[in-house]
């Protein structure tokens, strides 16, 4: 479970996040929906303690990442916005490296990698050097290495960005499966269909604050619209339909 209490952060004069509060429980997919520059990535980076919030608090299964960063990180599996791999290493070696940094034993890494390979369908390229991988192959490896330690909490920043239909479906099915295993999944996106397809709870983030939340149906009811895109526009423009 990820709890976020009024976190904020500014870079110089720009206040990127101004008091974001929410809770992402286990066995649920929570989506952060927002336009580019709404504060999604900065919020996520504070949650996975890459940057320190100027105010507020984050709790990962009750652990404060500011106080115990290493412990909090071991409870998290994160697919960040940037997902570069080590090109001279094979996909398997990329995953193993992160497994070792998590302090896993060789056997554990081996069995976990095998199950990730099966779930994400990476059999064809798992032992190839990652140089020249397609976008879809790269994202799969990046997800696998992020989740090699089988964390309870999964954070993904725009997970299907740049993926084709088949890869997107593969990733969605994988997330669904992880949810059924009782994981807490938090992801950010600016793609309506995506959010609509996989999330149980939607947090609309705009201008550094969460301005609406609820299931897709609840958001449609609140705004009186019949699709998520119209509802989103309604929410971020205060019902005016334009900025």
């Amino acid at each position: 479970m990820i709890e976020v209490k009024t976190i904020s952060k500014s870079f110089g004069e720009v206040q990127a996040v101004k008091g974001v509060t929410f809770c992402a429980p286990d066995s649920q997919v929570t989506a952060l929906l927002g336009a580019n520059g709404a504060g999604k990535t900065t919020s996520l980076r504070m949650i996975y303690s890459l940057i320190t919030p100027q105010s507020g608090q984050v709790l990962i299964d009750g652990i404060d990442p500011c106080k115990e960063p290493e412990k909090a990180r071991s409870l998290l599996g994160v697919l960040p916005d940037t997902r570069g791999l080590y090109k001279r290493l094979t996909a398997r070696e990329n995953i193993e490296y992160f497994g070792k940094l998590h302090g896993m034993s060789d056997e554990k890494i081996k069995s976990r990698t095998a199950s990730l390979v099966a779930d994400l369908r990476m059999e064809d390229f798992i032992d190839r050097k990652t140089d020249g991988f397609s976008q879809g192959q790269r994202v799969k490896v990046a997800i696998a290495r992020a989740l090699v330690h089988d964390p309870q909490n999964i954070i993904l920043d725009e997970p299907t960005n740049g993926l084709d239909v088949m890869s997107t479906r593969g990733v969605r099915a994988f997330l669904q499966k992880e949810k059924e295993r009782g994981k807490c999944i938090l992801f950010s996106s600016h793609v309506m269909q995506e959010v609509s397809a996989v999330s149980d709870e939607i947090l609309v983030i705009h201008d550094g604050v969460v301005c609406a939340s609820g299931s897709e149906q609840e958001l449609l009811n609140q705004t009186g619209k019949d699709n998520l895109e119209d509802a989103f526009v309604h929410i971020v423009t205060d019902g005016e339909g334009h900025e």
Partner: peptide, 13 residues
Amino acid sequence: RNSLEALLLNPIK
């Protein structure tokens, strides 16, 4: 190669 952020997210000082 954009691998730094992912690397820093591992539980290592």
